[in-house]
Simulated assay, not measured.
Amino acid sequence: MNRFFRCLAFTVLLAGMLLSAGCNQDAHQADADDAPIVIGWTAWDDAEFVTRLSKAVIEDNTHHSVRLKLAGIGKQYRGVASGRLDAMLMAWLPDTHARYWKRYRDRLVDLGPLYRGGQLGWVVPDYVPRDRLNSIADLADPDIAARLGHRIQGIDPGAGLMQLSQHALKSYGLNKQYQLVAADAHVMSKALAAAEADHGWIVVTGWTPHWIFAKWPLRFLKDPKNALGAAQHIDAVVREGFRKDYPRVAAMLSAMHLSLPELQSAMFDAQKNGYPTAIQHFMDQHADQVAQWVATGKRH
């Protein structure tokens, strides 16, 4: 009889230990589920709109919360590669971020393009006469250099576009005539707005998609040496293990795709009315499209 009660007590104790372990495991999983998904972004208008749109879609259609982390592009790649960030939605490939991609690609997972046909280049107002300035090579003319104040207005110095622009200056022999002025993208757009108001000449580092192309008639200078790269695709990149931890969100991001015209229109809306309003407008106007992204997530 004593042996029977000893066995019974051992069985109860073992069951309690297993139940406790199971509860601890469930609690750990609940903690992981409750942790916000951290998405890095840089203050480029296309990246900001797509990142904020993704946050809204994820939070509206899953139980996950999203926290946005503002960081330079290099820090984003390092953050996702190290696992400190869960995702970034602005990998410009194959040329613009080639240096970062080569360094970190073994520790990143590419979920595919969010939009295609992105273009980098040097941009001028369309009122600048084409017979005077239509190609980067035309910038070598001393009169044109003087008209432009020997300046090319750039964006943040860590951007791939700025690295390629330095390469373009050397490729076209312009590095002694021009200063590539580093600033953030907002300073670039303000400089362009000031030039447009005065009908002045200016060259800025630009890209599509961008709301400036929805607001003003602009054009890219031709780049016969292809120093600034060919058309790009802009991809969603996540850390290793993200698909396993968040399969539904990963599937939604893989399905997410926008055309350049609709993205540029939405970005211009954000400039006029703010991001919350523009994002709601987009989701209302593209309800079927958003529903497809969500449905893809539900299948995982």
Rank of each mutant, 00 (worst) to 15 (best):
1 M>D: 14
6 R>V: 09
6 R>K: 14
7 C>K: 14
12 V>E: 01
21 A>Q: 14
23 C>P: 00
29 Q>V: 13
35 A>V: 03
35 A>F: 01
37 I>W: 00
39 I>L: 03
40 G>N: 04
41 W>V: 03
53 L>M: 14
61 N>C: 04
65 S>Q: 12
66 V>K: 03
67 R>M: 04
67 R>I: 01
67 R>T: 03
70 L>K: 12
75 K>N: 11
81 A>K: 02
82 S>H: 13
86 D>F: 01
86 D>R: 01
91 A>G: 00
91 A>H: 02
93 L>A: 10
94 P>I: 12
94 P>K: 15
96 T>W: 00
99 R>C: 02
100 Y>C: 03
101 W>D: 09
104 Y>D: 12
108 L>S: 13
109 V>N: 07
111 L>C: 06
117 G>P: 11
120 L>C: 03
121 G>E: 08
123 V>S: 00
123 V>Q: 00
124 V>C: 00
125 P>C: 10
129 P>I: 00
131 D>E: 07
133 L>D: 02
137 A>F: 02
142 P>R: 03
149 G>C: 09
150 H>A: 12
154 G>W: 07
156 D>T: 10
157 P>Y: 07
158 G>T: 07
158 G>A: 10
160 G>T: 13
165 S>V: 09
167 H>S: 14
168 A>T: 11
170 K>N: 09
175 N>M: 10
185 A>G: 00
188 M>A: 05
190 K>H: 13
192 L>S: 13
193 A>T: 11
195 A>N: 06
197 A>D: 13
199 H>N: 14
200 G>F: 01
201 W>P: 11
201 W>Y: 12
209 P>A: 01
211 W>C: 05
215 K>A: 13
217 P>F: 01
217 P>M: 04
218 L>C: 07
221 L>G: 12
226 N>I: 05
230 A>L: 13
236 A>T: 00
240 E>C: 03
241 G>H: 11
244 K>H: 14
245 D>L: 11
248 R>S: 01
248 R>E: 12
255 A>R: 03
262 E>P: 08
263 L>I: 10
272 K>N: 11
274 G>P: 11
277 T>Q: 15
279 I>A: 06
280 Q>I: 00
283 M>Y: 01
286 H>M: 01
289 Q>G: 04
292 Q>F: 00
297 G>D: 04
300 H>K: 09
